[in-house]
Amino acid sequence: MSGADTATTPQSRPSVGVALKFVPLRVEVNPLTGMVSADDRLAGASPADEAALEYGLRFAEAWGWDLLVASAGDHRCEPMLRAAMAAGANAAIRVVLPTDTAAPVVAAALAEALGDCLVLLCGDYSLDRGTGSVPAYLAAQLGAAQALGLVSVAAVGEGTVEGERRLDGGRRERLRIPAPAVLSVEAGVRLRRAPLPAVLRARSAPLQVLPTPVPYAIDPAAGTRRPYRPRPKALPSPAATMSARDRVLMLTGALSERRTPAAVRTNDPVQAADIVLTFLRERGYIS
C-alpha cells in the first residue's frame, strides 16, 4: 500500500500499542564465504514480538480498548502487520524506514506512530542481533514508565498491568505498572490463531503508512548501523630486539599465566563490594 492510502486511526477509545519488527526467522550462512542470506518468505515477527501482540490483544479485550500495531520498515513488513490485524488488531501503521536503522531512530518513528497509546508492548529484543534498546528509547521518548524483559504480564485494573521479571539466583520480581508504560516481554506465550474471516478481511484492510520522520529523513547517515566489529584491544608493541617467537607469544598471550576469573559468590552487599574493591586494587585499577 502506498503512502497515500491511509486510514484514520481509531482515536475514540484509549488504545494499547504493539511494536513489531520484521526479522528473518531463519538464515543460511555459506560456510565458504561467510555470506549470510535470509529468505523473506521465512521472515516475520519474532516469537517475542508475537507474545507482545498476544498480551496486547488480551489487554485490549480486558479493558475494552483498541489495539494498534506498528512497525518501522519497508513494504516487506506489511504481511506481518496484516497478520496482526487478522489476529485482532484494530489498525496497523507502517513507518517508512530503511532496514538496519539504529534503535533511537526506530524508537522515534514508533513513538510517532504509537504515541497516543497508553500501554505499549514490544518483544524483549529482535532476533537479528538486536540489543533490546528500542523499548527503552521508546519509553524515554514518550516519558512513560518502562518495564523491560518481562517473563509474563497480566492485566489487573484498567490501564494497569502486573508483570514478572527474572532476577539472579532463579528468583523473580513482581511489578505493578500503571499506564503510561512501555513493556517488553520475552517469548513464551503463543499468539492466537487468526479466524479465517479475519484473515480474508485483513488482506484488503487499509494500512496506514507514515513517512520517514523528518529529522532522520534529511540525514540518511544518522544512526546507520554499521557491521559488527569487536572492540579492539590495544597492546603495546613488542620490542624490536625480541625474537619472533617471543613477539608472537607476547601479542597472543599464549603460555602466559592467567588467573581464573573472579566470581562474587555472596549475598552480603558489603562483603561483595569488598571483594570487588580488593580485585580492582590488586590489578592496579584503584589505589
Binding site: R193, A194, L196, P197
Partner: peptide, 9 residues
C-alpha cells in the same frame, strides 16, 4: 472446513 477458528469457507 479449515483448521482456523470460524474456519468454514
Amino acid at each position: 472446513s479449515t483448521d482456523r477458528p470460524d474456519g468454514d469457507l
